[in-house]
């Protein structure tokens, strides 16, 4: 039943030095961007990672792609520990994990033609050259829905959606096995978002890719992900199959997050039991003790302040880190409404 594993992350931690500097300029504090994150990504699966700004989701993406070095923990790709690889072996690994970025405007070099942009990874890796390179690039352009005739055009001649297609082509040219997409559609208009989401799904099916899809938009993740992890202040607070997390969220934060999403249906306006979280996310430099969500949680008890809840399996791969998980009777909308 268990599918082969494409990528595993074990207890990944990244602290950034920050804060007031002492006399000799040593930072006195640490920003706990990612604090003990573990998950498994199966082959051909899409894992969605959601959370608000500052939850550490983008740092996580950079750790996995080794754009940042973790403070501790492991990243395992195809049963090979890639956490500490350097030089040529790291380059080999980078071929396997590729990234799609948020901003299709700033992630493409404006002075390079589309052909150059898409073929650059091939040249860096020194695999193919000449005519073969050219035909690979044209093939890839066709695959992502760009006209291969536009090989010699420059990024500014394309619309936002087309530029994101260029970014996708560039990340696919090396035949990676894992794609990490960091907010790939959040800079795009709704009608274009749908085009790109459809493209990503089609590519995944055709090429058997594994996806990590990072986004703040819960609806988009709902649409594309098989499995969802919800992050809050550097930790995964809930993880499981999409249908379970969205259908019956166990963590109060997930429940609040889902209930805050505006519903495109005026008849549901002001529906009973909207949860309104108070205040802002606390600083990751100095997170609350115990459960990090407790300062905004309406169910918090003394236990939550003293003991950090572990991420435990509540059945069928649905994990939650909470001392007082949501009861089925509470549904998604029963908790006290706070305004």
């Amino acid at each position: 039943m268990s599918k082969p594993i494409a990528l595993e992350v074990r207890n990944l931690v990244k602290y950034f030095p920050t804060g007031h500097k002492g006399f000799l300029g040593r930072p006195s504090q640490e920003l706990k961007a990612v604090d003990g994150v573990s998950f498994v990504l199966s082959k051909g699966e899409t894992l969605g990672i959601v959370g608000e700004s500052g939850c550490g989701k983008s740092t996580l993406a950079r750790l996995i792609t080794r754009l940042l070095d973790p403070s501790s923990g492991q990243v395992i790709l195809d049963s090979q520990d890639i956490t500490h690889l350097r030089g040529r072996r790291l380059r080999d690994v980078r071929r396997q994990i590729q990234m799609i970025f948020q901003d299709p405007y700033s992630s493409l070099n404006p002075r390079h033609s589309v052909g150059q942009i898409i073929s650059a990874p091939l040249e860096v890796q020194g695999i193919v050259s000449g005519d073969e390179l050219m035909s690979r690039v044209r093939e890839m352009m066709a695959l992502v829905g760009l006209n291969p005739e536009h090989y010699n055009r420059y990024p500014h001649e394309f619309s936002g959606g087309q530029r994101q297609r260029i970014g996708i082509a560039r990340s696919l040219i090396l035949n990676p096995s894992v794609i990490i997409a960091d907010e790939p559609v959040s800079a795009l208009d709704v009608s274009i978002q749908a085009q790109i989401l459809n493209l990503l799904e089609k590519l995944q099916q055709d090429l058997g890719l594994s996806f990590i899809f990072i986004a703040h938009d819960l609806s988009v993740v709902r649409h594309i992900a098989d499995k969802v992890a919800v992050m809050y202040l550097g930790k995964i607070v809930e993880m499981g199959p999409s249908s379970a997390v969205y259908g019956r969220s166990l963590h109060p934060y997930t429940t609040a997050l889902l209930s805050a999403v505006p519903v495109a249906n005026p008849k549901k306006r002001g529906a009973s039991g909207r949860i309104r979280l108070q205040g802002d996310v606390p600083s990751p430099v100095n997170p609350p003790s115990g459960c990090r969500f407790r300062t905004r949680c309406w169910k918090a008890s003394e236990l939550c302040a003293s003991h950090e809840p572990p991420l435990i399996d509540m059945g069928e791969g649905h994990l939650v880190a909470c001392h007082h998980p949501m009861e089925p009777s509470e549904g998604a909308g029963k908790p006290p409404v706070e305004r």
């Binding site: 709704v190 009608s191 978002q193 749908a194 989401l197 819960l218 609806s219 988009v220 709902r222 649409h223 249908s243 969205y246 259908g247 889902l258 999403v261 519903v263 495109a264």
Partner: peptide
Amino acid sequence: GAVSSLDDS
């Protein structure tokens, strides 16, 4: 039609 929604199971 292009909007993905939370109910979109």
